[in-house]
Structure formats: C-alpha cells, structure tokens
Design a protein around this nucleic acid. Structure first.
Length: 556
RNA sequence: UGCCCGAUAGUAUAAUGGUAGUACGACAGAUUUUGGUUCUGUUUGUCUAGGUUCGAAUCCUGGUCGGGCAACCA
C-alpha cells in the first residue's frame, strides 16, 4: 500500500481497494477539470487538494484539464489565473489539457453513436424538447424526429458541423429512454449549434459538445482512473457510464463528494461574478472575495489553505464550514512564520516627562519569538514622545483593565515600564496627550526594577514613525447564508472595509516584502497589498489576533 | 408526490458488528514583556420506530427531516 496510515476519506478507501484488487493495473490518475469562465475559489481549493492530494498519496498523477466546451463564457485570461492559482497552492499537474483538444475525437464518438442507432438529430426548439421530456413524475414523449434513419442523422449532423444551420436550429441527442425515472437519461442533448468564437479553436467549430458528452469522454481519452466531482453530478453518473459503455472507451469511474460551503460568504461563480460586475468589490482578487487570488491578496498562505482543506474532511453529507476554522488555519500558520512589528492604527500621543528631550535610544526586538533565535532582530528607535493606541488608555479603568489609566503601569513592548501621571483633553473632551514617567532600570533585557506589570502595549516613536495606509477587512456578508435571501446582496456588510489613511509604523516596516505576513503586535496579521508602492505602502489586514479581552469587555 | 443522495456534540469529521474518538468553537485554569502563543481541564453527540444479533452509529424494514434531479450551463 502507498502508506501505512489509514485512508483519509471514503474516496481514498475506494482507491486503496482498487489498488489492492489491481483495477486500472494499480494506477492512479486523477484530474482537476475547471471551466475557464471565472476565478478559482476556496471551494475549488478543496477539490484541488483532494485530487492532487489523492494522486500524491498513492503515487499517481493529476491532469489539469480545462473543460472548455462553452465558448461564449470562456476566456484565456481565466485559464491563466487558474494555472497561477494552482501553482501557488503548491501543486504540479502532469499534463495541461483542454477538452477542446478532443473536439475531433468527440465528433467521431458522436458519429459512432449515430451509426449504432443511439443518437439522432432533433429539429425541435428548446421549449419543445423541454416539454417533451415530461416531468419527474410523468414520462416524456418522443419528438417527431426521434426515428430518423442513420443515414439522415449522419448527413444532418455533418451539415450541422459545416455551419449550414443557425444557432438552435438542431441538436444531437442520445437515444436512450424517454420514460426513465432519471431525467438525465431521457434522450440527453449531446451537441448544440453555437456560431461562437472559441478561445482556443477559434472559428473552426460551430457545434460544441455538452458537458455530458465531453467530460466522461475526456476522462476516458486520458484514461483517468478516478474522476472525482461534486454531488450534483450523481444523477449524471448513469449517463456517464452509459456513454462510456456504448462508445467502448476506457472505463473511467466517477465518484462524488459534497462541495464546500462556508458561512458568511457566497461560493457560486455566478454570484461572485455579480459582486465583481456590480462593483461591490474591486475585482476577482479583492481581499474580501473567497477566491484563491482574493485570499492570497488578503494575506492567506498556501499552507494555511491546504491545511484548511485537509481539516474539513471529505464526505457526502451537505456541510457548512464555519469561516472561523479558515481563520484558525491562517492564524496557526502566521503565528509560526510572521515577523513581529509595531504599528499604531488609532494614535494618541504619550509623553514621558522624565525622559530627556532630544534623546534617541536604539532598542531591538526579535523578529519571530516563536522560533529559536527569533530569526534575528530589528532596531527600534525610542524617544520621549510615542504614539500609542487610543484604546490602550482609559480615564477611568474598569476592573481587569491591564492598560494605561492615571496611576496605572504598563510595559512598553521591548522598552521600559511607564506609569501614567496625567493626561490632557481638548475642548471636546477628547484625550490629546497622555503623560507618564518611565522607570529607567526596567529596560527590556536588563530589568532590575523588580516590577511586575500586568500589561504590555505596543508603541511607535513619534519622530521616527513612518506613515502607511492600512486596510482593515471584515467579512463581506452579515448573513450566515447570504444565498438563502432572494437578493444575496441585501446582506452585504457595509463595513467590510475600513481604510486607515495614516497609520504610524516602526521604520523597519518600510522594508516589508511582498507576499510575506507580518504580525502587527496585538493588532493582527497584515501583508503588503499588491497595489502598494514604496511611496505609499499599503497593508491589508489578513485576520485579527484572537481577542479574549474584547469578549471580556463586552461582558462588562 | 417519480428517482437519487444523505442524517454522529454548536460546526465539521472518525469509528467498516465489540470502550463513540479527533479538530475547531465554548467554558475554566496555568504560563506569558503580545489580553497573542503554549499547556491543562470541562462541556455537549449516534434523527425516529421496529427487526436481526450475545452485542448495532454500523446490517434490514418503515417513518421523519435535509439536499439534489427536468438549462441548447458545467
């Protein structure tokens, strides 16, 4: 067996059984078959991790196959984004393939069915065909074209290909069973006429195969052993098998699992496209989108997404995963890898009255306390005037408030312990300045003060502070299941983006690298936005830190 | 009122006829120069009614509930 651990899910079990029994000669070849009509989202990531992961685990391979049979919605730009996302997630496909590469073969397959009396050209309109299919409880009836001769069907189908007919004039249908309780077996459509420009085949075709006459056939052509798809294709499986059998091609097998649903978001490409087109977001890669590119821009790592996909499991039961699990996964990864930096998002000035004016000390702080050695240190300038977070001061402190208030002491991270002596308010009652004294012998690393303070706060030296833009993202929807509403845009969160034009950060943050995660101490994880420039650095908040104090404060 | 799929803690997911476990969450505590991290503990579950069996989450039957299936989309 490929490895000693027990199978990770029911599909892995099937594969192991197949390997044991020698089916497919013990070979494992899966495929990931996106349609290039949109960007990949986190639901696709589940499928990618499943398909590529299964192949890796059992020493097989995975093909990337673009299911491009509908030229009116598909574009090369989508192809590029999809390839980029899969690579970024850390997977390598064996072959890059396109269903459109098989158009000629597929056409031959269709003529074989016709020759065997198993397919016919139908001149009925879409409405007529729909009506003649019956309903789930009533059988369908044949249309007047069902019993055309093989010769007539053959020449008509050839004429369809030649472009003799306009869109919708004729279709090719399989001749199966109009009374079958499975609607998909009631003479399904195989080919339709579409005089449309295809992103790869250009204008060489004006008839295009339907999904059911392309997918299984492509699987067979590639000799895919395990064709893994989502639950909505379960009723297609009998048709999948029927066509493979009649065509006498490689017996690929289809297996279905439940797609990923995440609460507080939408996952259908149609809805995501709507968010883009109606400018609810800035694009497919808006950091609030559940797309791979959006998550990446938000600061999610490939590792965290892969871990998430493994942790949610694979089964056939409908499921809704709590977005909190995704957040757990990114925090888990970034906690171990992100370099710590200090940034003040909502500043108020703190003056250390007993610290010499004009003096600067160069303190230092480790980059990553989670790693032995801290991955080195960066210098942090310290002076008499500092920016601190407005929420870290209260005129009157409630119980268990371990921050600043008159008389209270806190440690300034990587620096000294200070005690609040006084504060200044303006005419509107807004605090404009907090005054403290510092304890010189409490310096970090050489503290001889013996003081034990409950709280530590972050800060940035006023004269050394750099200014950056910070974008605070929150969930895009307030409803747990936005798609359940008649209009899913009704529950869009109006506060899903808060822009801070001027946040103060420690100078070293100007050396931030694109694609790297940073923890703004006590505030959350951030990453440089793709639109960031050296002149105007922009940081996106990936996720906040867990905040048990916020919960406590709410109780009070 | 046809066919198909499913039902295990709040959410997911394991247990493949033999002690219902794991993760996230929640709650409590310890540690902490991040109210972060880490550690410890607690909490909550087999849809229902029968049947088979020494023994059923697992097998069988009925029911209930949820989802899917009729696009010239995939």
């Amino acid at each position: 067996m490929a490895n000693e651990e027990k199978p990770v899910n029911f599909i892995a079990e099937i594969i192991e059984a197949d390997i044991r029994s020698g089916k497919h000669g013990g070979r494992v070849l899966t495929r990931f078959p996106p349609e290039p009509n949109g960007y990949l989202h986190i639901g696709h990531a589940k499928s990618i991790v499943l398909n590529f992961g299964l192949a890796q685990r059992y020493h097989g391979k995975t093909n990337l196959r673009f299911d491009d049979t509908n030229p009116t919605t598909e574009e090369t730009a989508y192809v590029e984004s999809i390839k980029n996302d899969i690579k970024w997630l850390g997977f390598e496909w064996a072959e890059e393939l396109y269903t459109s590469d098989y158009f000629e073969t597929l056409y031959e397959f269709a003529t074989k069915l016709i020759r065997n009396g198993l397919a016919y050209v139908d001149d009925s309109t879409a409405a007529e065909i729909a009506a003649s299919k019956g309903t789930p409880t009533e059988p369908g009836k044949p249309t007047p074209f069902r019993d055309r001769s093989v010769e007539e069907n053959l020449s008509l189908f050839a004429e369809m290909r030649e472009g003799k007919y306009p869109d919708g004039a004729k279709v090719l249908r399989a001749k199966i069973d109009l009374a079958n309780p499975n609607m998909h077996l009631r003479d399904p459509l195989l080919y339709r006429i579409k005089h449309a420009h295809h992103h790869r085949t250009g204008d060489s075709w004006c008839i295009y195969p339907m999904y059911d006459f392309a997918h299984g056939q492509s699987d067979a052509i590639e000799e895919i052993t395990h064709s893994v798809c989502t639950l909505e294709f379960v009723p297609h499986r009998p048709l999948y098998n029927w066509l493979i059998e009649q065509l006498e091609i490689y017996p690929s097998k289809q297996y279905e699992f439940a797609r990923l649903n995440l609460n507080y978001t939408v996952m259908s490409k149609r809805k995501l496209l709507q968010l883009v087109n109606n400018n609810y977001v800035t694009g497919w890669d808006d950091p609030r989108m559940p797309t791979i590119s959006g998550l990446r821009r938000r600061g999610y790592t490939a590792t965290s997404i892969r871990n998430f996909c493994e942790r949610i499991g694979v089964a056939k039961r409908e499921n809704v995963i709590d977005v909190g699990l995704l957040e757990f996964c990114i925090r888990e990864d970034l906690n171990k890898t992100a370099w710590r930096r200090m940034a003040v998002l909502d500043p108020v000035k703190l003056v250390i009255t007993n610290y010499p004016e004009g003096k600067t000390e160069h303190l230092s702080g480790e980059n990553n306390p989670e790693v032995e050695g801290g991955e080195g240190e960066r210098p942090i300038p310290f002076s008499r005037e500092l920016w601190i977070e407005r929420e870290d001061f209260m005129e009157e402190a409630p119980k268990k408030f371990f921050r600043l208030a008159p008389g209270l002491m806190v440690r300034l991270k990587h620096a000294y312990v200070v005690q609040c002596t006084d504060f200044v308010k303006d005419a509107d009652g807004r605090v404009t300045e907090i005054r403290c004294t510092y304890i010189p012998e409490s310096k970090s690393g050489e503290d001889t003060s013996g003081l034990k303070v409950k709280g530590t706060i972050h800060w940035v030296s006023v004269p050394h502070a750099k200014t950056v833009t910070v974008r605070l993202y929150d969930r895009l929807f307030n409803a747990e299941n936005p798609a359940a509403d008649e209009d899913f845009t009704a529950s869009i969160n109006p506060d899903s983006l808060q822009v801070i034009e001027k946040a103060y950060v420690e100078p070293d943050l100007l050396h931030a690298e694109p694609g790297k995660g940073y923890q703004f101490i006590r505030k959350g994880y951030f990453t440089l936005d793709t639109g960031s420039t050296p002149d105007n650095p922009v940081f996106n908040r990936t996720v906040t830190l867990r905040d048990t104090w916020a919960k406590e404060a709410q109780k009070q």
